[in-house]
Each structure stands twice: as C-alpha cells, then as structure tokens.
C-alpha cells in the first residue's frame, strides 16, 4: 500500500529537470552578489530539509508528520556543542547529523510498523516528545533558545563569521548532502525503495525486507534533516523551539507537496517558494499562516503533483503542439 499516489515520471521531465538543476546551481554560485547571503542560506538549508523529507514522503510513500524533530534535534545539538565544546564547526555538524540519524533509527523502528495515517500520528506524537524535551530542559533556555552560537573556524582555519564565507561553506556542505541524496535515489537501493512504495506485498514476495528498506530511508532522511538543521543553527547562531515545532513539520510537507513529491526538483522549488513567501510576508504576521494554509488546501484539492506536475503538463502540451507543427 502506498500512502501517496504518485504518477509515473514522464520521460520529458528528466530533460528539463537536469537543465533546471544546473541553472539553479549556477545561480547559487553567483547569487550572494545580488541577494542577502543569509536569506540564501535559509533557502539552501530548507531545500536540503525538504529533499530529505521527500525521501520518505515521495520515494518511500510514508507520510511522516514529525520531521522537525530531526531538524531541531540537530539544531540544538550543533548549537550546544559549538557553544560549549572546543570543536570545529564541521565536527559539530557531524555530531548533529549523527544524533538525528540515531533518533531516526529509534523513531523509524517504532513508526514503520504502521502505515498511512497511523504513521503520521505516531511520528507527530514522537516529535512532540522531542519538542517538550527542549521546551523544558534547562540548557535549551525555553522560549529564548540557545543564542549567540559561535560559527567558529572551518577545519580550524577559515573564519566563518563573515556571512559571505558562511554562505559558501553552507553551499559546499549542502551539495555534499544533496548529491548524496540523488545518489541514493538513483542507486539500486532507491529502485527497491520505490518498488516497496508501489507494491509492498510484491516486494516482500520477491524477498525484500520491506521494513528494513523503509527504516534505512527513514534514517537517511533523518540524518539529512539533521544536516539541514545543524547548518541552519550554525548560520543563524540560534537554536530555538520553532526548529522543533510541529508547524515546521507541516511546512516541510507543504514544501514537498507544492513542489512535487517524488521528484528531484520538486522539493527545491517548493522550499524556494515557501521560504520566499515567509520572508516577504513576514511583516504581515499571521497572514503567512493563512496563506500557507490556503496553499495547502489548493495543493491537496487541485494540484497533487505540485509545480512539477504543472510544468510537466505545460511541457507536454508544448511538445504535442510543436510536434504537430512539423
């Protein structure tokens, strides 16, 4: 049983998707000259977060509703370790990825026994435990969070306190995480994962341990969500309760849904749209929440394949039309 019904990828997608990714990478390299670097950092971390979530939502067909727990756990772990231990930033981030992945093993093991809505509710409840842990534990400083986290020196050599330098550091780490994810999805394991999503009973009858395969995906996803959370905490020098809040879990679902689940570029587009919207609507307060809600409803009711689905449709219409012209 799959949780989310995903249409087969049209072949034409692969063409424009690759081109678009290359263009976006080129843009990412030059963008800080035009746009405030920390805004770009935010986009990169959320693209990574959404792509990580897409691994379980899109490719494993699991509707997790507690991914903020992994983002936030790493956020706090990186903030606290960078602040109190004599370690370099890359070690702090590795530590964050490790704890998130470890928690991913535990939460995944508990949750993947159930499917569909149960899975969503269980992951949500488990994430609430994490939320209340950080809301109460003394060193997390409640509503204030962990502030003034030092960015430190990359490898002990390169000072990251300059926003521009920080941006390229984040871009580098982001690319490692993102390319790793692409590699996983394209690997034989990724194919098996999709097979389990599409027809679990058949995959089991072929000898695959469906639960183990889903657990691996969940763990990788948790670790990469941690990577995003860690980068975010380090860049903004802050770990706060909004990093573990269930609304963040809802937002990451929205990013993947709006962009297009089970596609490479979908979460990228979705994260850019949502972060940009949050940024530009921030002065309007609660309107952000209302808009996000409206987009959620519209996506569920009318465009379940997201922006990518719309582009595919337009591309197909265009190909059909130009095909006829010849």
């Amino acid at each position: 049983m799959t949780t989310i019904d995903i249409k087969q990828q049209p072949v034409a997608r692969l063409e424009w998707e690759k081109v678009a990714l290359v263009i976006l990478l080129a843009l990412a390299l030059i963008a800080p000259s035009f746009v405030y670097p920390l805004f770009l950092v935010r986009i990169l971390t959320f693209v990574l977060f959404a792509s990580a979530y897409n691994l379980i939502f899109g490719y494993a067909g699991l509707l997790g509703f507690g991914h903020a727990a992994f983002f936030g756990l790493a956020s706090y772990a990186v903030a606290q370790s960078a602040k109190t231990l004599p370690i370099t930033p890359e070690i702090a981030i590795l530590f964050g990825v490790f704890v998130s992945a470890a928690m991913g093993v535990v939460f995944g093991w508990l949750a993947i026994r159930r499917q569909g809505l149960y899975f969503a509710m269980i992951t949500l409840a488990l994430a609430q435990i994490v939320y209340f842990f950080f809301a109460q534990v003394e060193w997390a400083h409640g509503e204030d969070g962990i502030q003034s986290v030092p960015r430190g020196h990359f490898l002990g050599l390169i000072d990251l306190s300059d926003n521009m330098v920080m941006y390229y550091f984040v871009l580098g780490v982001f690319l490692i995480g993102f390319l790793f994810l692409l590699r996983v999805i394209a690997s034989p394991y990724g194919e098996v994962l999709k097979a389990v999503r599409d027809n679990e009973a058949r995959a089991i009858s072929l000898g695959y341990d469906a639960n183990a395969i889903k657990l691996i995906a969940f763990t990788i996803s948790a670790g990469l969500a941690g990577l995003a959370g860690g980068l975010n905490a380090l860049s903004f020098q802050l770990a706060s309760l909004s990093d573990v809040h269930y609304l963040l879990s809802a937002e990451v679902i929205l990013m993947v849904l709006i962009g297009g689940a089970a596609t490479t570029i979908g979460p990228v587009l979705g994260a850019v749209v949502v972060v940009a919207m949050q940024n530009y609507f921030a002065p309007f307060g609660a309107w952000v929440l209302v808009f996000q809600g409206v987009i959620f409803v519209v996506c569920v009711l009318t465009m379940r394949n997201g922006i990518v689905g719309v582009i595919d449709m337009l591309a197909k219409a265009w190909v059909d039309k130009s095909g006829k012209a010849y």
Binding site: I4, F65, I253, F296, V297
Partner: peptide
Amino acid sequence: RRVYDLDHAYSLLLTIGLTMVLEGAFRL
C-alpha cells in the same frame, strides 16, 4: 468530500491546511 476517494493521507494534509487558515485568521 473531495478527498473521500483519495488516500487517507490527503485528508490529514487538507485539514492541516484548514487549521492554518482558521488559526491564522484568528491570530490576525
């Protein structure tokens, strides 16, 4: 009623969206 025939997961996503709209409107 538009999501009865879809996977149950969509009902959760839809009602999350409705929650955001309602709560956001009152927060305004």
